[in-house]
Amino acid sequence: MLELLKEPWPWYVAGAIIGLIVPALLILGNKHFGISANLRHACAACFPADIKFFKYDWKKEIWNFFFIGGILVGAFLAVTLLNNPAPIQVNPKLAAELSTYGINDYSSMVPRQLFSFESLFTIRGFIMLVLGGFLVGFGSRYAGGCTSGHAIMGLSDLQVPSLIATISFMIGGFIMANLLLPFILRL
C-alpha cells in the first residue's frame, strides 16, 4: 500500500480529492475555497498603507493562513514520508526543447537549473521568479481569484465570470509558454 502511495498519483485521484476540498471547506465553516486571497490578507496585515482595498479585518480570514500552512506541511510530508526517488517523466518533446536551454535536471518538482538562489541573480532567473511572481500576484487579484478561486470554486458554483477568468488564464499561459518563454529561456 505504502509503495503504491509513493508512485505518482493518477489525475482522477488527485482531481477527485481536490474537488472534495470545495465541500469540505464549506461544510467545516462556510469557507469558500481560494488561495490568492492570502496574498491580499498578507498586505492587509503587514502593509495596508492606508489603501482602502487593504483596510478590512484580515483576522476574519485567518483560517486561510492555517489552510496554506497545511499545504506547506503536506508538501513536506509528501517528499519525506511518501518520496518517489524516480525523476519526473515528461513528454519527450518537452525534454528535447528544454535541453536546448540547458535544462536537464528532472530530480525535483521544479527545474533546479532555474529555481535556485544562484539562478535568481541571472536575467533569466530574475524574470521567471521575480517578474513571474509579480504577474501572478497582480493578475490574480485583478481577476478576482486564481485557479482555485475561479477555476475550481467559481466553476463549481457555475459562475460565468469565473469561466471567463479561467479562459483568460489559459490564454495568458499559452501565450507565455509558446511565444514568450522560448526567448526568456535563451537569455
Binding site: 497582480f138 471567463i164 483568460s168 488564464f169 495568458g172 501565450i175
Partner: peptide, 8 residues
Amino acid sequence: GGITFGLG
C-alpha cells in the same frame, strides 16, 4: 487580470 495571471 486573467491574462496577466496566465502569463505569470
